[in-house]
Design a protein around this nucleic acid. Structure first.
Lengths: 184, 184
DNA sequence: CGGCTCATGTAATTCGTTACATGATTCT
DNA sequence: AGAATCATGTAACGAATTACATGAGCCG
């Protein structure tokens, strides 16, 4: 039985202790989201499937009168997680509407600076979010999440620098165009 | 009527002249694929929809006895492309199974170097592909595609550097672990 | 009491890939 | 003759989002 990568997000997040679907979602939103997002619409059905497959186990753990189901890895689940870690990663996808717009900006050059600025702002915001979780990741005994976080930081920093360079380049061209019009 | 971003890939690629579905696919594979991929399963149905919406027009242009349909932008299609370029980009998604595996590598630390090396190799290959199209992009009068290409290059170069640093870090830790075992 | 967080889920829809089918032309 | 390329498409499936529905407990 083939599992989706999102199934492994769940197995991975359960490796250090039991969690509810809700908790998984909130951890995803503060960690793997940057390179692998997941919504409730995936998480809850997937939890059921993984439980049926015997890779996780759910246990009712009400908090007050509030219903809760905590899931934890079974030995088979832990083994499956390790097996997956050993095989080569395959999926690498990017969908960046900003780059797409910039690519076609020749059809409407005035739009270009706005697109670049939006991309810049997006990565500024990302950087802010990463800075928020950085101390926690740095202090953790498991060094791998911190390693990944630093990649995210480097990526956003590079993107911001590139945006600045691109904006400067556009301004310069604008300048030259103005000058050549004046001298004509 | 809302169009998907993939629809704009088509509109964008037709901005400089008529193309068949087959040609669109092959251009996508050598350009936008790095930040927005598209398959035949999307392209052909989308061409039909765009034609129905009056944004593109198909004309039968057989080559020899071989059936071909070339599509070109209508004035409405060009206007729609420009309208889209002016509005803020929204979609930014990344799915990186390598980062996911590294994030969870604590469950199987031996897997980490292999994951990093696979990521490195992937970006080396990407860099090679970008280098192949670089001269063409550089020479083009439209500077925007070249701008986007340079971002792709910078991204892959950064990633390779980060992989090397991460691998060095792991080796160092390995070294220290060995030493502390020896002194114990 | 009202709003927020905790908590669980489903249905509809969209988006996209993969695999398959078909056939002509061109290159070796 | 056979392989590669040009060319067009569809069907089945899978992955994922969005919107909706529901309700309890907690804080001010």
């Amino acid at each position: 039985m083939e599992l989706s990568s999102t199934a492994y997000v769940i197995l991975g997040l359960l490796r250090k202790g039991a969690k509810t679907g809700y908790e998984i979602k909130s951890v995803v939103d503060r960690s793997t989201r940057f390179f692998w997002a997941a919504s409730y619409g995936q998480i809850y059905p997937e939890l059921r499937k993984l439980a049926e497959a015997g890779l996780i186990e759910g246990a009712s753990k009400p908090s007050g009168g509030r219903k809760r189901t905590e899931y934890r890895l079974t030995p088979a689940g832990r083994k499956e997680l390790r097996r997956w870690l050993e095989i080569e990663p395959e999926v690498f996808e990017m969908r960046d509407e900003g780059l797409l717009k910039l690519f076609f900006a020749g059809a409407s050059p005035d739009a270009a600076p706005k697109v670049i600025e939006a991309k810049r702002a997006h990565h500024e915001e990302k950087l802010r979010q990463l800075a928020e979780i950085e101390p926690l990741a740095k202090a953790a005994p498991d060094r791998f999440p911190y390693m990944v976080l630093r990649y995210g930081v480097a990526l956003s920093e590079l993107t911001i620098e590139w945006c600045d360079a691109a904006l400067a380049e556009l301004r310069e061209e604008e300048e030259q165009a103005r000058e050549s019009r004046r001298s004509a």
